[in-house]
Write a protein that binds this DNA or RNA. Sequence first.
DNA 1: AACGCTCACGTGAACGTTCACGAACCCTCA
DNA 2: TGAGGGTTCGTGAACGTTCACGTGAGCGTT
Lengths: 345, 345
Amino acid sequence: MWTDRQRVEPGGERPDGARRRATIHDVARLAGVSRQTVSRAVNDKGEIDPGTKERVLEAARLLDYRPSRFARGLVQKGAVTAGLVIPDLRNPFFPEVAAGVLEAAEQRGWQVVVWDSRIDDARERQALDVLSHQADAVVGYFKDSDDVLTRHLGGVPLVLLERGPQQTRFAAVGIDASAGVEQGIAHLVEAGHRRIGMLDGEREPGARKQAFLEQVRRHGLPVDESWIVLCPEHSVAGGEAGMERLLEARPEITAVFGFNDLIAVGAMRTARRHGRGVPDDLAVLGFDGLSLGELVDPALTTLHIDKRQLGRLAVEQMARLCAGEEPLRGADAWVTPELVVRESA
Amino acid sequence: MWTDRQRVEPGGERPDGARRRATIHDVARLAGVSRQTVSRAVNDKGEIDPGTKERVLEAARLLDYRPSRFARGLVQKGAVTAGLVIPDLRNPFFPEVAAGVLEAAEQRGWQVVVWDSRIDDARERQALDVLSHQADAVVGYFKDSDDVLTRHLGGVPLVLLERGPQQTRFAAVGIDASAGVEQGIAHLVEAGHRRIGMLDGEREPGARKQAFLEQVRRHGLPVDESWIVLCPEHSVAGGEAGMERLLEARPEITAVFGFNDLIAVGAMRTARRHGRGVPDDLAVLGFDGLSLGELVDPALTTLHIDKRQLGRLAVEQMARLCAGEEPLRGADAWVTPELVVRESA
DNA sequence: AACGCTCACGTGAACGTTCACGAACCCTCA
DNA sequence: TGAGGGTTCGTGAACGTTCACGTGAGCGTT
């Protein structure tokens, strides 16, 4: 015989709001059947009389019964939840990557828990702390070192977004900045530019700055740190501010390469405010290929990235890690930018 | 005595990839302690010798042990997961709403599972089917009727985004379109406009179209269906196409009201392509207040919505539903747009 | 020597569900 | 009348973890 929960609440009824959620037992008792029959009814499996099924469903409705996802997950394997950590949902770049992740995850039947770290290292770690408990794999943008990440990871597979293989032991998915910048600078040089500045976006020199230096030197153009200005804020406003400083430091530039499209758009605005027409007095080249770039005037020439593909690749990597396979390395895990010539350069 | 899982795999070892995940028992056995001691070690609670703790942690690392979130959730209550369904991550409006949801959820210690329904009713229902099993509450944009939603909901609390109280029995959070449009049309009329068209975005007439008709009539301006063109696609391209048709149908318009900023920007582009300067030959008014509107030329005059607030309100509503309280109704659950006059009108 | 206390650890139970199996019942046909 | 088969339903076990206790060793006090 099965003794149902006899645990009587002290003082009779519970306080109203915090009523214990109904379980399958409660429904079974009310409907006068066994758990299993309730299970059959709510999951509409066969082997149940239409009449009792209706009775059970009615009881479930009455008690506002919903099966516990935990109890279910415990016994039925296969539900995969991925974590996605993004620096800033308001930068149009990241929603596009997220869309790729969501799309690929949906195809595999996965769910995705999203975190916006708001460009805050502490919040990144916090996200990891939570997701390491709640997700089967995590993908995202992180600034911390491998060691710090490992400590907050608790063994959950991690895929890093946009971090080169030399910079991490984790599986990664990224952008072939070098190939992109090569196209971009070649385009500028071809158009006759010899004095090119850059608005960088990363405190520690990243792949884009590296590639910029490389390409500019390859073409024998003048360059040193004074040609590069850091924009801590990856936004139009950040680009505007950075461009002010760049024009002050190197007024002789005839072209500027932006860390991303938002910064590049900011650069265009500042240039125009200084009376320098784009592209005639100053060419501007972006990086990302946001659709926003088509709307500004002049339309932004940029290195377009297939952001959805980036997201899809990330999911592919997670799947490999979850299956215990080797992650993709090298070019397979990279997305190659493509030069889109519009009007600004 | 406790017989550990003796269930021998047929044929000896399992195929490589699909190894059963290690449980707390496995770790306990390897470390030569009990489950509880393992639990103490991994959750670093007290009452454990530093030496054994180290030994246990080492065993856990060796077996790649990660506690099952299901088993944990079953015994520890309080983990809340919300579902968020948005129509299109590539429309900059929705990431902002999502950011508000994520922010408010984080503050409450909730997680958010995000779905991009890609403006597809079937995918909306599919999202509900999944989330009703995996989330404690759902918020999102849905086109289906209450009845259809109920059927796919299985009793999970739902908060509808941007659906008026007359249109649904569910809890909702929305925009006071009427108040917004009133400001907008008043602004246009004040500037002398008497022939105003609209680029609508909803197949079944929604609140914005309703409010437009109301306000236009209130000011005694001419209007009927020929002044309103439907843009099925909520994008710049959609706005461009719609504006073509509107200019054909009603070339005499001196101002146009766009369903959202993207459509309004499209309208501006088409207007210009037709040789009509904005705002002098044609005024354009948007709705949403995307930051994108500041970047186009001329900058878009628009009815600005606090999208983050919308997201925060949505979470507040979910919290109330989960607690069994009454949801907010009426003005408390509405966000009022604010006219931002820039250059296009 | 008896007692009490603390520390480190183990044990049964519970969480809520599904799965595999078995039992009871009704119908059919030999 | 009894065997066989289908339909409908119930029962123990298992999933992996934490909680509330219980236990025994070691140590100090009286």
